[in-house]
Design a protein around this nucleic acid. Structure first.
Lengths: 137, 137
DNA sequence: TTGCTATTACGAAAACTTTCGTATATGTTT
DNA sequence: AAACATATACGAAAGTTTTCGTAATAGCAA
C-alpha cells in the first residue's frame, strides 16, 4: 500500500503534484495554465518535468488520445507526511512540537482556527485511551 | 531588523546554520566534525559552503586569528519562519492548519506534548485580546 | 491536399548545489 | 631551520534541477 520509495519530489514536481491532486487528472496544458497563475513557466518546461516524473513513478498517464492525461501516482497524504518528516528534521532538528509552536505563533492564526485545533486535540486525546485499537483509519 | 532578502539557504547551508545556532560561533573544523556525526562530509566541502554562505550573507566571520570563527548572520527564528512559510505554501497549499493537523495526527504525539500545545494555545488566545499591543517579543 | 495549430519527444544548455584536488600560508614541534 | 600538521583560498568537476529550442506528429479547417 505504501510507496516503495518515499518519493522525494523536487519543488517543481511538487507544484505539479499539487495541481493534479487539486484538479484530478489533467492534460499538460491544464497543468501549465494552473502553474502560470502563480509564476511564468514555459509549456515545454512543464511537459519535460512531467515526463521525468513519469519515469520516477510520481505520475502515470493515459496515452489513448493524442493529448495525454496525467494523474498523480503518489498519494497526497503520504507525500505530505514524508515531506513533513524531512522538513521537521532539517529545519526543526526533528522536533515537530517546535514546528507546531512556531506555526501557531505566527500572528495570523485566527481564533476559529485555534478552536479547530483544540477540537482536533481533544479527538486525539480521546483516541489515545484506546491505543490498542488501530487508529490508523 | 528583518533580513532584506528572506534568505533561502540550501539544505547543506541549513545543516551548517543548525550547528552554528546550536553551538554558537565555531571554527570550520568544529562545524565539520558536527556534520560528520550525521553523515560523511569532507572538510574542504564544508569550508567551501561556508565561504559561499559568507558571500550570501548567511554567516559572518572573525578573521583576526588564523582559524576563522564563523557565526550565523541570520536568526534561527526568522529563518525558520521563512522556511516554514515556503514549506506550507508548497506542500500544504498555504494552509498552516492543514500542516499542524497532519503533524499532530502523526501517531507519535504524546499526551504531554498535546497538553503543552493546549497551554500554548491558551496563551495565544489570551494575547489576542490585546492585539494592539506588540506581541512580537 | 495544403496550411495552421496544438501536442509530444528529445537533447542540450543554463542554473544551481555539492564535492574535492591542489596550492599556499601559518603555526608547531623537533 | 626543517619537517610536519592544519588552515584558507580557489577553481574545476560532478551532480541535480530547470529551462528552452527544435523536430516530428496528429488533428483540424479551408
Amino acid at each position: 500500500m505504501a510507496n516503495q520509495h518515499p518519493a522525494k519530489p523536487t519543488e517543481s514536481e511538487l507544484e505539479i503534484l499539487q495541481v493534479l491532486w487539486a484538479n484530478g487528472p489533467c492534460a499538460v496544458r491544464t497543468v501549465n495554465d494552473q502553474l502560470n497563475l502563480q509564476r511564468e513557466v514555459g509549456y515545454t518546461t512543464t511537459l519535460k518535468i512531467m515526463q521525468l516524473m513519469l519515469n520516477k513513478g510520481l505520475v502515470a498517464r493515459d496515452t489513448s488520445s493524442r493529448t495525454h492525461i496525467y494523474r498523480a501516482a503518489v498519494s497526497e497524504k503520504e507525500t505530505r507526511a514524508n515531506l513533513l518528516d524531512r522538513f521537521v528534521d532539517t529545519t526543526f532538528r526533528g522536533s515537530a512540537m517546535d514546528m507546531v509552536m512556531q506555526a501557531l505563533g505566527n500572528k495570523d492564526t485566527s481564533a476559529e482556527e485555534l478552536a479547530e485545533i483544540k477540537a482536533f486535540i481533544k479527538k486525539i486525546e480521546a483516541e489515545e485511551c484506546f491505543e490498542a485499537v488501530s487508529i490508523d483509519y
